[in-house]
Design a protein around this nucleic acid. Structure first.
Length: 599
RNA sequence: GCCGGCGUAGCUCAGUCGGUAGAGCGUCGCACCUGUAAUGCGAAUGUCAUCAGUUCAAUUCUGAUCGCCGGCUCCA
């Protein structure tokens, strides 16, 4: 979770990490130290320990930390030559590795982002403990308030993020200026957990992930499926208005399709094992690209046909690592709002703008205004890793940059993060717990047109190669739905609410009128349910409230007499009785406007 | 996949220092007929994740398996 204090809290968190490292060394004198940076909401430190750590060990480490804090020891900054550092950290193999990396210029030496070979390393010492550290730190240990830090969890983390290196024990902690800030932070975490899509998905009966079906394979329950259908209908309509043509394609196909596309070689390990069908290997489709290439090739294309926009809300299957699966955010069945746009090189820029506009429009409709854009470009040092010539890359990267600039989007450029087939722009959204997830991707592709021999006949009569734009504005239905649930905390706007209104008769004698109301609202296109359980009105209101249903329509003697409904909003507001026709008109207006409001 | 934690009724959870388990909600039945967040009474409900081992006896101890949760880029 980011916050404005992030930077000012860095020294405090850095120091807390150091105090923790010393505490761990007091408990485990043989521990080997990895790294211990300050992070968004706290700090961590990686250790190689003689035995596995359990959460029960944390209070003991915390109490060592408190003792250290009470000692009021100064943090002293120093510099060592590489030689001195090698001697100083000779018992600490991980630190030594970092010293060598700094000497070679693979790591920044003083916190700067660029790195270059260095003659010296920066160190900090307190109370006889010296650590390799760029800093900054607080003045003394007691500047870390003893009641404003907490060790949160233990995790495994590969040394320098590399699966092939040893796995160290990571201890996560959080640290703040005051106990109140810590309590606020813990409270925010608690609130975030309340809107976790996995919890709400269960409570609101939106989806399940049955063990019997398999990991990462969701089953959408009626209410969740209703919402998804509404999202898909919106996407479909929006795309038709923007000149897209929708297609359907098979869920399996010959393996050769993905060999041709190059995906098999790169992502073969993430695909489900090929199946033999009459002696020919087939794959469950891991991406749609080849299918849409077939659509393009189904006839000879003219330059006048471009851009040709081929869309499909299509499900693909990918074998994501089991440990990476998270609710609906990371699944093995992925339904993309996919499309491939075939353009002439001179159309890349305009079409990129079109897709950006489409993405922003769609996000806005769903109530999102806060995301982070990254532009992934080629690593200029290793141009050989990418397909396509300099001119193509430069013009494509420039086209994307100009498009982002023209739409006033700030973005981070990530060199070397481009796909091998072309540059891309990604949009990230945060979930309730502050984790960032990629939704949108817009990619330029020079490779597929070549691999599939795509052509169009240009104005001069010559056959030329189109460029393909891959794009998925919302990303996947699964991930987007998860983020949507958390964004609204389950209280969906009227146009998306699976049940828009609950009809609540007060007594048995009102059932007949209640059924009439139900019939009229259904006829008016509303999604309504009638609560006919033998419960009291109060209980029915409570249950509708817990299901976050936008409207509760109470009907009793008065309403039956006046062909009315008493409208209660899920916000608790009472709109009092109004004629049924008036309620329908209000709801219809709000749905058509895709409004977030309920009145 | 790897490290750590967890796995008890549909849901949320308690419990058994080894003697085959309980609450609330939900479900079902009966009564109540109610005006804006839980009416009362009664009933049913579990291979205590799975499989093996130790034991007279395992839901409890041990091991394996499956699943879930947190973590595995963020500048020593």
């Amino acid at each position: 979770m980011s916050n404005q204090n992030g930077d000012s809290l860095r020294p405090l968190r850095h120091s807390a990490a150091h105090i923790m490292a010393q505490a761990v060394l007091e408990v485990f004198p043989d521990a080997k130290l990895g790294i211990g940076p300050a992070i968004d909401d706290g700090f961590y430190y990686d250790f190689e320990l003689p035995r596995p750590l359990t959460p029960d060990d944390l209070p003991m480490i915390e109490s060592h930390m408190r003792a250290s804090i009470a000692g009021k020891n100064e943090f002293v900054h120093g510099e060592l030559s590489i030689e001195q550092a090698r001697a100083k950290f000779k018992e600490q193999p991980y630190k030594l590795e970092l010293v060598e990396a700094i000497a070679r210029g693979e790591l920044g030496t003083h916190g700067e982002s660029e790195s270059h070979p260095s003659e010296t390393v920066s160190i900090y010492s307190h109370n006889g403990f010296t650590d390799l550290c760029a800093g900054p730190h607080v003045e003394e240990t007691s500047d870390v308030p003893a009641d404003a830090f907490k060790l949160m969890s233990i995790a495994g983390a590969y040394w320098r993020g590399d699966e092939k290196r040893p796995q160290l024990t990571r201890i996560y902690g959080t640290a703040w200026q005051s106990k109140k800030e810590l309590d606020d932070y813990l409270w925010r975490l608690e609130e975030a957990r309340k809107r976790d899509h996995r919890k709400l998905g269960k409570e609101l009966q939106l989806f399940i992930l049955p063990e019997e079906v398999g990991q990462g394979l969701p089953v959408w329950l009626p209410k969740g499926a209703q919402i998804r259908k509404l999202i898909e209908d919106y996407i479909y309509q929006n795309q038709v208005e923007r000149g897209y043509q929708h297609v359907y394609s098979p869920h399996i196909g010959k393996k050769q399709l993905w060999i041709t596309s190059g995906h098999w070689e790169l992502y073969g390990d993430k695909m489900y094992a090929p199946m033999d069908i009459d002696g020919v290997e087939h794959l469950v489709k891991p991406m749609n690209c080849p299918m849409h290439m077939m659509v393009y090739k189904s006839q000879l294309r003219s330059y006048k046909d471009l851009p040709l926009r081929i869309a499909e809300i299509a499900t693909v299957y990918r074998r994501e690592q089991s440990g990476e699966l998270t609710g609906l955010l990371r699944v093995r069945m992925i339904t993309q709002d996919d499309a491939h746009i075939f353009v002439r090189p001179d159309q890349i820029h305009q079409e990129f703008i079109n897709v950006i506009d489409q993405t922003l429009e769609q996000f806005r409709v769903f109530g999102f205004n806060d995301f982070q854009v990254t532009l992934s470009v080629r690593d200029p040092q290793h141009k050989e890793k990418y397909l396509g010539n300099d001119e193509q890359w430069q013009s494509a990267e420039q086209a994307i940059k100009r498009a982002l600039d023209e739409r006033d989007l700030s973005y981070i450029v990530e060199e070397g993060e481009a796909a091998f087939y072309g540059p891309k722009a990604d949009f990230m959204i945060r979930d309730a717990l502050g984790r960032k997830w990629q939704c949108t991707t817009i990619q330029v592709d020079f490779q597929l047109p070549q691999r599939f021999n795509l052509e169009y006949i240009d104005a001069d009569g010559a056959a030329k190669q189109p460029v393909v734009l891959h794009r998925a504005p919302l990303g996947s239905m699964e991930r987007f739905f998860a983020i949507l649930i958390e964004h609204y905390a389950g209280a969906f706007p009227l146009w998306l609410a699976p049940v828009q209104a609950k009809i609540i008769p007060i007594a048995d004698r009102h059932y007949e009128y209640a059924r009439e109301v139900e019939k009229n609202l259904r006829a008016a296109g509303m999604r309504v349910e009638l609560d006919e359980r033998p419960e009291r009105m109060n209980a029915k209101i409570r249950d509708a409230q817990l299901m976050k249903i936008p409207y509760m329509l109470v009907v009793g003697d008065k309403e039956a007499a006046g062909n009315a409904v008493a409208v209660r909003l899920r916000t608790g507001e009472d709109l009092k009785a109004m004629p049924l026709e008036q309620f329908i008109a209000m709801a219809r207006r709000l749905v058509n406007a895709k409004s977030m409001e309920l009145k």
